[in-house]
Write a protein that binds this DNA or RNA. Sequence first.
DNA 1: AATGAATGAGAATTCATTCAT
DNA 2: TATGAATGAATTCTCATTCAT
Lengths: 218, 218, 218, 218
Amino acid sequence: MLKKLTEEKIAEILETGIVEFARLGLDRANTNEIAKKAGISVGVLFKYWKDKEAFFLACVDRSLAVLESVLAEALSRDEKILVRAERMIRAVQKTSREHVNYINLYNEITAGASKKYAHVLAEKIEGITAKTYSALIAGAQAEGILRADADPRMFAFFFDNLLMMMQFSYSCEYYNERFKIYCGEDVLEQDERVVSQLLLFLESAFTFTRAEVPHGKG
Amino acid sequence: MLKKLTEEKIAEILETGIVEFARLGLDRANTNEIAKKAGISVGVLFKYWKDKEAFFLACVDRSLAVLESVLAEALSRDEKILVRAERMIRAVQKTSREHVNYINLYNEITAGASKKYAHVLAEKIEGITAKTYSALIAGAQAEGILRADADPRMFAFFFDNLLMMMQFSYSCEYYNERFKIYCGEDVLEQDERVVSQLLLFLESAFTFTRAEVPHGKG
Amino acid sequence: MLKKLTEEKIAEILETGIVEFARLGLDRANTNEIAKKAGISVGVLFKYWKDKEAFFLACVDRSLAVLESVLAEALSRDEKILVRAERMIRAVQKTSREHVNYINLYNEITAGASKKYAHVLAEKIEGITAKTYSALIAGAQAEGILRADADPRMFAFFFDNLLMMMQFSYSCEYYNERFKIYCGEDVLEQDERVVSQLLLFLESAFTFTRAEVPHGKG
Amino acid sequence: MLKKLTEEKIAEILETGIVEFARLGLDRANTNEIAKKAGISVGVLFKYWKDKEAFFLACVDRSLAVLESVLAEALSRDEKILVRAERMIRAVQKTSREHVNYINLYNEITAGASKKYAHVLAEKIEGITAKTYSALIAGAQAEGILRADADPRMFAFFFDNLLMMMQFSYSCEYYNERFKIYCGEDVLEQDERVVSQLLLFLESAFTFTRAEVPHGKG
DNA sequence: AATGAATGAGAATTCATTCAT
DNA sequence: TATGAATGAATTCTCATTCAT
């Protein structure tokens, strides 16, 4: 058998790695086990990736590629900021269920699985969304939809923070429990409630202008 | 069974553990190393705590106790919701710097470190804040400061999400990088900017009422 | 408390040791545990006995003293060899139940718990019975009850072998199972059957004389 | 899963284990040491056997297989009971010298080494001999060679007890010393004496019939 | 004398990685 | 090239023994 691994085989191996790393974390996942589950020999695994960490990062890369494409889809069309926001929240709810493993892997990185790559990874992962969101929000501001004294980058950050927490809340064990504690045992089956409330929260944050405050406070 | 280790010594051991677990995570931290750094023998460590995991959880407990007390302090006085929010944001900025390790440990939990404890830990950690925040927000709503159609528990959840992300952003490597990518390399030295922008974001979210929307959107 | 340990306290400690060593063996029994169960500090244990092995040997000594005295009782009266044998078998059945631990400890020694003392221990333990049995059998021979071509020492050896195996069979887990496999699940409740059959076996062995063989073989 | 270790290598490892376990017992034998002496890495040892105990049991199995085959050989031919007995005694003398370790390992089991397996091991080890001996003796009884009032299972048990003690007496340190105390320092070099005396003992036990007793006792 | 907390050598076991086939 | 058996350093945890109080 002198053939190189096919694209598909590599994809299969990475998917197996993703499942294992998502389930057990970088340290507890076992390369021998992953190889066995992927139907290859460990030899191949270490031939294609320098070491366990390199393989882990490859798995991360793959996860992110998928997550990004989903996000990109939700961001693509040119619509009002709140419409986009809604689409993104729904996208998060959907992908969080379809790609639990990817998000858990993402969570594993943020928790410091491989600190030396924090910088590289953050740049790779957050770079695009950061710019997109900031532009989105700056645009809204230009259109007068968003208060003038808002800092687009900061608001983009807060917005992504909320989305990121939603992702984890739907996919990761700890955040899942926390979600239920805050919003009720059934919150995972109340997608519409979550969407509408988060939109309400964002709508206010985004569209509010100080001139109107006095009334509200009055 | 007289415990010879003084309270202080135990505290010292736990602090050593916290540093190591925050730095390396549950799996990579080394009990022999921790014992050495704490100036005790491994025997003591395993006499006082059943096993590595039990010791880890003790470290977590200690971290949380400190974080909670800081939070409690910021929440204590009876003031307008936004004033409290500001106090909490500032508290987060302060503790995130003073107690980097505690927060990293917290972050370690939220990732997979010890999945079997997700439920217990979430309950222990989030239980109190969840109730406090919800009450706070429901109160604001009763006073007419918060829109009537807001769900206090959901809003409390979003609020805590934002605070939690701030904590991680100030303390944890990955989130740190992400913070800078979104808000600029200097953001870590711009505490006032962060406070005012987050307050702006929250103020809108909290004080907005739908009646006023048409103007904003017009 | 400046008093030395009383005889009774020492006895209590040794009994605790006997129980633990019988239950777990020399290696798995835990000196800290033994001290705790005996209500003393480990310090005392190691003050009175040089090390774990010395303590183990002291426990062995005590066990043997009791077993010997029981045996001595059974051997004391001057009667016909088979009557004595019967008394001994019954003594074995009784002590095997009353002093399970002593016999398990004895078994632990024979299995090599502390090989370097094999010689000393064998001499101490077997010395007396060996002489007693041999004398007993030589006497029987002199009286014409036992065939002339029997070697008293060898026959004493075989006799003790049978008794020893009976002890283990009643007290030690493995031998217990073996006993049941050979003689039926209920054998432990059939003491009379065991006594009569063993006597039958011994009676033949002891009282047989070759002159009579031809008939049996014919 | 191709096992690369050859049959011979596995046999060699087990033999090394047998030597160590026979010498030091289950607890004191050291897996690292065994691996080194067997010329393999610990990794291999724990890949082929789940844990130390599993390896120990594998060693036991191997020992028993050999002992059984020897015994089977001695029992195979169809001859008079005493002729078979003699062959078995001689087989015991031979194997006790050739396979000192196997018998020491057997002895280790009978003591507490692994109490949880007492039942399983006893069944495995004693099951066959128990049936064979009982059948042998029942046969002798049917032929009128053995007294009618003898219980074949009990007599088989006594017979095996005597053989078992002979094995230990030739192979195990403590029993060795005891053997010499009972039968003289030179007994180990007096195989013929032992054979003839044990046969004498058994012959009497087996062939005696009560009708003849009165004369003996008279 | 007695205590029992502290010690730390020692032992079983795991698993990333190598390399002979 | 692919395999997967073998390696052995590394790590957790135990427990006999000491010794300061």
